[in-house]
């Protein structure tokens, strides 16, 4: 799988309608209204955010190759597909990206999977402390939480997980080479994962092609995990990975500023909106985004107490809850209800 083939395919869809950076923005998953419209209108959702770290230089090298080969033409700053280009598009293998649903989170899933497999592998050997291959604390905490519910001491457990992974990979319909790439990135007690360079060398492909096949493979694997209910372990590792974020544009802008590290007040100042509007956006995020960091706003102890109280009282009415939890603001209560119970009244 070549990056240039993907570009050619995308150009054939947007034929003459867009400038050369449109594809780059889609690969990188730029959340501008222009790019979001483009992927909808031209049916390019699968490619959205597939290569979030693609640098302009690499992109242009591949694009120029297409221009030099005469598959793509540039006129008035727009890209067109040529007749030979169109012929070439017909010969391309179909691909099965699902960037719209996963938006780069497939990597999060994989990092969790890799650490979980490493953990299982070491526990099998009776080793409970080892150098984790994933240094990301977020991933480490997630897997730690996951491991608490796994029968790590059970002798048969690794075999069960191995079976589940094999079945899911098989059911996903990806190529054998992709299965090999995915499992080669995993590390365990007696074997260490391979780097992109090493895989490229072993498979006689460019590192970028290896990476693209890896991402597509993960998308297919995640699709299977979500569609069928036969993969409980993998589904656990995939928690919150599938994007259900269909926020309004304005809320999404707020979400982006939040992701950059701004707090509610700062966002209101920057966006020149009322504090209450921004708070509404946060509630929207809490409802829609399973990975919303609720504990940045309230203590997990308070969350539990509110959830229990809601069950006890059988109501989600804010005023009643506010009487019970004087120390929590209305905003905090709405966040808890949004995140845990899908909203309040």
């Amino acid at each position: 799988m070549e990056l240039s083939s993907l570009i050619l395919f995308m150009v054939s869809k947007m034929n003459g309608e867009r400038s050369k950076n449109a594809c780059l923005h889609i690969f990188r998953g730029k959340k501008s209204s222009q790019t979001l419209q483009d992927v909808q209108y031209f049916n390019l959702k699968p490619f959205f955010s597939v290569l979030s770290k693609l640098d302009a230089e690499t992109y242009e090298t591949h694009l120029y190759r297409l221009l030099a080969d005469g598959y793509v033409k540039e006129a008035d700053g727009r890209l067109y597909v040529s007749k030979t280009g169109l012929q070439k598009v017909k010969e391309l293998d179909s691909c099965y990206f699902n960037g719209w649903d996963y938006r780069g989170n497939e990597i999060v899933f994989f990092h969790r999977l890799a650490l979980a497999i490493q953990t299982i592998s070491y526990f099998k050997e009776g080793i409970k402390s080892f150098m984790p291959i994933q240094t990301d604390r977020e991933v480490q905490l997630f897997v730690k939480g996951m491991a608490r519910h796994l029968p790590l001491e059970n002798k048969e457990f690794p075999r069960k997980i191995g079976g589940e992974l094999k079945n899911a990979l098989q059911a996903s319909g990806m190529k054998d080479r992709q299965k090999l790439i995915i499992v080669s990135r995993l590390s365990g007690f007696s074997i260490t994962g391979r780097t992109w360079d090493q895989l490229a060398e072993e498979l006689q492909m460019s590192p970028l092609s290896v990476y693209l096949e890896f991402i597509e493979g993960l998308h297919r694997l995640l699709d299977v995990i979500h569609e069928e209910r036969d993969y409980p372990f993998l589904l656990q590792a995939a928690e919150g990975v599938k994007s259900s974020l269909y926020l309004t544009d304005s809320a999404d802008q707020t979400r982006r500023l939040f992701a950059k590290g701004m707090n509610v007040e700062e966002i209101a100042t920057v966006r020149r909106l009322k504090l209450s509007t921004i708070e509404d956006h946060f509630v929207e995020m809490a409802i829609n985004d399973k990975t919303f960091p609720l504990t940045d706003f309230v203590l997990s102890k308070q969350v539990n107490e509110v959830v229990l109280k809601v069950e006890e009282l059988g109501t989600r009415r804010l005023r009643m809850l506010k009487q019970e939890f004087g120390e929590l603001s209305y905003f905090q209560l709405r966040l808890i209800l949004g995140s845990k119970l899908g909203g309040g009244k």
Binding site: I117, S121, K124, G162, V183, G188, F189, I191
Partner: peptide, 9 residues
């Protein structure tokens, strides 16, 4: 085979 080696199966 690699999955087997990874998980010591």
């Amino acid at each position: 085979e690699r999955i087997d080696v990874l998980l010591g199966i």
